[in-house]
């Protein structure tokens, strides 16, 4: 899949943990203001690939990458690129809701903002982010309460608000609903659809119904015999679920393995 106007592109990307290659030669691009789903069986390198996009991968001991990741045409692994700047432009939401436990709801939302931002601006930014994350109405009267007092689904939306508050262009989500109940899952899925109007979203999911519901494009990955994850195919989600071009994709989708 090649989107000429993609804000985020990956070219021949390989990712390593020590000597072990977890992602091999992946090239793909992510359509602007759309949701792209990364699918594949456990251990095929989805999380690793996602974590290369904001360079969180490199904080694991012995982790490194080869190849190119382009954000608006700039190589994010270039020495000119500030990793801090990159991470502010490419936000991330994790598998398990992980609000900062010692901070209030408000403190969590503004935790990515610079300390020099005036208080009023912080309040405005927090409200905007919480509204975008569809959480404002539920928490507007208790912004000072500890974030850990929220339900799991609310905590995950708080984490989304926290990522949105720094105004990223891209949002990376690693199985954001896998620890949530069905109702909370539904509300996060609705939210993703809405956020895709403004943000380029990449979501890892194990759940094929979820991929079908939220994503416009989908990529299918599989680990090869050396356990290195490779891209099998990438297409519009609807096409991938109806007429996949690769046998292995079809086998996975129809539940024959994975």
């Amino acid at each position: 899949m090649n989107h000429p106007d993609a804000p985020l592109k990956v070219e021949d990307l390989s990712a390593f943990y020590g000597d072990m290659r977890a992602v091999a030669d992946v090239s793909m691009s992510f359509a602007p203001r759309n949701v792209t789903a990364l699918m594949g069986p456990s251990g095929c390198g989805k999380t690793t690939l996602l974590r290369c996009l904001n360079r969180i991968h490199e904080i694991a001991p012995g982790a490194r990458t080869e190849g190119t990741v382009l954000l608006d045409g700039e190589d994010v692994y270039d020495s000119e690129m500030s990793v801090i700047e990159l991470r502010r432009r490419v936000g991330m939401v994790f598998q398990r809701p992980n609000p900062f436990p010692t901070m209030s709801i408000f403190g969590n939302v503004v935790s990515g903002l610079s300390r020099s931002v005036p208080k009023n601006d912080k309040a405005a930014a927090a409200e905007k982010a919480l509204r975008s994350a569809a959480l404002w109405d539920e928490v507007k009267d208790k912004l000072g309460r500890p974030a850990t007092a929220l339900s799991g689904g609310q905590q995950q939306r708080l984490c989304i608000a926290r990522a949105l508050a720094v105004e990223p262009e891209v949002l990376l989500m690693d199985e954001p609903t896998s620890s949530l109940d069905p109702i909370s899952t539904l509300s996060i899925e609705e939210l993703m659809t809405k956020l895709a109007e403004h943000y380029t979203i990449v979501v890892v999911t194990h759940n094929m119904q979820q991929a079908a519901r939220v994503s416009r494009y989908a990529a299918f990955m599989l680990a090869d015999e050396t356990r290195a994850g490779r891209l099998v195919e990438m297409d519009e989600t609807s096409k991938m679920f109806t007429k996949p071009s690769d046998r292995r994709t079809e086998d996975y989708i129809t539940g024959r393995f994975g």
Partner: peptide, 29 residues
């Protein structure tokens, strides 16, 4: 302290030192 708290902080653009002083040590207090 859970690793994903550190990652959450770093993914917001915090430096290692900011992460340790504002997130990790408070969580361990």
């Amino acid at each position: 302290i859970a690793q994903d708290l550190r990652e959450a902080s770093m993914s917001l653009g915090a430096t290692k030192w900011e992460t340790v002083s504002r997130v990790v040590i408070p969580a361990a207090r």
